[in-house]
Amino acid sequence: MSTKQFNKDNVFFGITPTSWWNDDFLDIDIGIPFEQCVSEMALAGFEGCSVGHKFPTDTDVLREALELRGLRVSEPWTSTYFTIKDMFDKTVADFRKSLDFIKTMGGTDIVVAELGGSSHQQPIALKANRPIFTEQQWEDVISGLNHIGQIAKDEGMRLCYHHHMGTGIETRADVDRLMESTDPDLVHLLFDTGHIAFAGDDPLQLAIDYADRIKHVHLKNIRRPVMEASDAGQFSFKQSIEAGIFTVPGDPEGFIDFDSILQTLADNDFEGWLIVEAEQNPANATPLVYAKMAREYLRKVTGF
């Protein structure tokens, strides 16, 4: 059995603000302010975070608030729309804004997902209504990602593609096609354990097969009974979140085998951000409790 460990100088633990409020569905919110969110992230033992809609947009203000708490930005999110009409220029412009932001904040990774036709933000059955790309749409998203991936590389940054529920790149088969068709020097993989499990595929096998392409990780756990209820009831993404489908690694209510996933990443010399992401309703899941649960689990498994 492997005992290889992460190089703690090159692996960083972060968390998203989606346990404190939701950035897709703004009514999933109990009024926790930005300052409390980032203070609790630091208190739980994390060193970085993605950005949410309550974060200051002034980079000087944001940097000061994060540095005060020993935090830094792990990644900005940028939605791409290469598969729908007349959105190429705006997609590239938005990506360049994210690129400028993360460079200013001292980071390296930009997270993107193709949301053309996505069902995940709509009040409709999530899986039944997700887009199935035509051949032309596949060509458009592949060429578009290679294009902005080159922009990122030229600036010393990394584009990390996030496979996502409700989108045209949701399942293992979709990820396979994306990885086979894009330039590995330009398009890296953001591996999201929860999204690939929710899609019905094996997160451990994805980690094994694409270890060389994975440059950024979202650690999201799933409560199997809620997933089964969501599938049976044709829930929307929001309904699934409100029902409690997601939780953190280390929660015994989740079913994903993070021990094996983390060992696989360590065995393949993963370097970069491991980001805890559990989109939970803070009214039902106290954010600090779950943030501490996740960090304690990661400390136990990795030793730091």
Rank of each mutant, 00 (worst) to 15 (best):
D174Q: 03
W77D: 14
R177N: 13
D9S: 06
Q239S: 06
L126E: 03
T134N: 01
E242V: 09
L66K: 00
V111F: 02
Q263M: 03
M105T: 10
I245F: 03
K153N: 13
A285K: 13
W77E: 14
Q122D: 13
I169G: 03
H218R: 00
G106E: 02
E64Q: 15
N129K: 05
P33F: 11
I208W: 01
L71Q: 08
T57S: 13
V175F: 02
S240L: 08
L219I: 03
L190S: 05
D251E: 08
A93Y: 10
L62K: 02
F12E: 01
L288R: 00
F237H: 11
A229D: 09
P33I: 15
G194K: 02
V141S: 05
G233T: 07
L159A: 02
D257K: 00
T57L: 11
A207P: 01
S50R: 08
D176P: 04
E135N: 14
S19I: 12
L126G: 02
T108S: 13
K4I: 15
P203Y: 04
D212K: 11
L186H: 09
S230M: 13
A232H: 01
F46S: 04
S2V: 10
E114S: 05
S2W: 04
K292P: 05
D209G: 02
L71N: 07
A211R: 12
L274A: 02
K300Y: 06
G31E: 05
A113S: 12
H120E: 10
I148L: 08
A152R: 02
G117K: 04
T59L: 13
Q137W: 07
D9R: 04
N22E: 12
I222S: 04
E75H: 13
D23E: 14
C49K: 02
I169Q: 05
A44C: 05
L219T: 00
H120P: 09
N281V: 12
D86F: 07
V112R: 00
V301S: 00
K90M: 14
G303N: 10
P282W: 12
I245T: 09
C49S: 15
I245Q: 03
S230Y: 03
S74C: 15
Q205C: 10
D58Q: 07
M179R: 06
D269W: 08
F25K: 03
C49Y: 06
D89E: 15
A294R: 01
G106F: 03
Q121I: 15
L99Q: 06
I30R: 10
M1N: 07
K4S: 14
E296N: 12
M165Y: 03
